[in-house]
């Protein structure tokens, strides 16, 4: 049962990265869009994610619940030492979720829209940045449970080149996912080209940030290179992700859009796989070589048993409903003008 629970945890993180990530990315794109094109971006975004945005963010809740029920030591250690980035991320979540809803449901359209839009775009950037920082810090080995100063316990646990680089990488991935996602939502060549350019931009950004992550890992003596390339799973994943990327760009230039999303999803899945595979089951690495492990730091058997049952039961209800939701609104998209205001 423990493996089932871990699989659910991994899957929720993956889905959050893919779906929530695309969702954040759409806001990031807005941040990087010229003023005159913002409105089109916004409309495409709204038609694409309006009905499912709430559901996209549930994956985070599922992941966090699994963590605090099944792996309480991991949850509470991270909560203590990563208090500050977690708080920033939460503020980002508050700002983003409310601004997204407010701008579509405000009965009067006036200058407030500008405020909502600004908050939305900025928090769409900040939130995944800090999510990435948190993920990076977990494996960076900078969390020091023996620290006795404020700085070493609560600041340097997360403020490092490596963590920040992972944060930027996450932002780039989100932007990339969103651009690819939105290409399929456009209804004319002009917009399609614009999002294709955006995808290109974020693709390059992701590669650059990736290099930054590796550079930082060398600087801070984090054996990232070994984690990724030191085993067959990692090597195969990286090669297949790269090949699929080439394939994806080829398809895009030929104007074949059907496979773009699955391919982009595949690439991100491979990235998550390589980065988690090698040091599974240790998901938090502490200063001085200690670690917190999903196997050793799990709750008592009975807890894991019931948690697993609850998750299995839940997925019987959730997955079909979620697919039907996505399918329905793909087939029958909402009309921006009619629904807003």
């Amino acid at each position: 049962m423990l493996y089932i629970v871990i699989a659910f945890l991994w899957a929720s993180i993956l889905f959050y990265l893919l779906l929530g990530g695309a969702d954040y990315g759409a806001g990031i794109i807005e941040l990087f869009t010229s003023r005159k094109n913002k409105e089109v971006t916004r409309k495409t975004l709204y038609t694409a994610i309006g009905p499912i945005w709430e559901a996209n963010h549930m994956w985070l809740i599922i992941a966090i619940v699994i963590l605090f029920v099944g792996f309480p030591v991991i949850y509470s250690t991270m909560s203590v030492y990563l208090h500050i980035p977690l708080t920033v991320m939460l503020l980002g979540i508050i700002a983003r979720g409310t601004a997204f809803t407010f701008r579509h449901y405000d009965a009067v359209v006036d200058d407030m829209q500008h405020i909502y839009n600004t908050i939305f775009a900025i928090s769409s950037f900040i939130t995944p940045l800090f999510l990435g920082i948190i993920a990076g810090s977990a494996v960076s080995g900078h969390i020091d449970t023996a620290a006795n100063t404020f700085l070493s316990a609560y600041i340097f646990s997360w403020l490092s080149w490596f963590s920040v680089a992972v944060g930027l990488f996450t932002v780039a991935i989100c932007g990339f996912l969103a651009s690819v996602y939105l290409i399929g939502e456009t209804d004319n060549d002009g917009d399609r080209l614009r999002f294709a350019h955006k995808a290109q931009f974020f693709n390059i950004a992701a590669v650059l940030c990736g290099i930054l992550v590796f550079a930082a890992s060398f600087l801070e003596k984090i054996p990232l290179f070994e984690w990724v390339f030191g085993n067959w799973v990692g090597r195969i994943a990286i090669v297949s992700a790269t090949l699929s990327l080439v394939w994806m760009w080829n398809l895009l230039y030929q104007g074949k859009l059907a496979l773009l999303r699955p391919l982009a999803g595949f690439q991100v899945t491979m990235i998550l796989l390589t980065t988690t595979y090698r040091h599974f089951p240790n998901i938090v690495i502490l200063k001085g070589g200690g670690y917190l492990s999903l196997m050793e730091h799990s709750g008592q058997e009975k807890t894991i048993e019931t948690l697993g049952m609850a998750l299995l039961l839940g997925s019987v209800f959730i997955l079909p409903a979620l697919f039907y939701l996505i399918y329905s609104f793909q087939k029958n998209p909402i009309d921006y003008r009619q629904e807003a205001h």
């Binding site: 619940v65 605090f68 949850y75 909560s79 039961l313």
Partner: peptide
């Protein structure tokens, strides 16, 4: 954190079921 370290695994059942309920709520709301 100290509370959750011990309480999480004990009173977590309703939270894990609640996850399902929220999810269904969010889907139905869509």
């Amino acid at each position: 954190p100290e509370f959750m370290k011990h309480a999480g695994p004990i009173f977590g059942m309703p939270f894990s079921l609640e996850g399902t309920a929220f999810f269904i709520e969010a889907i139905a709301l869509g």
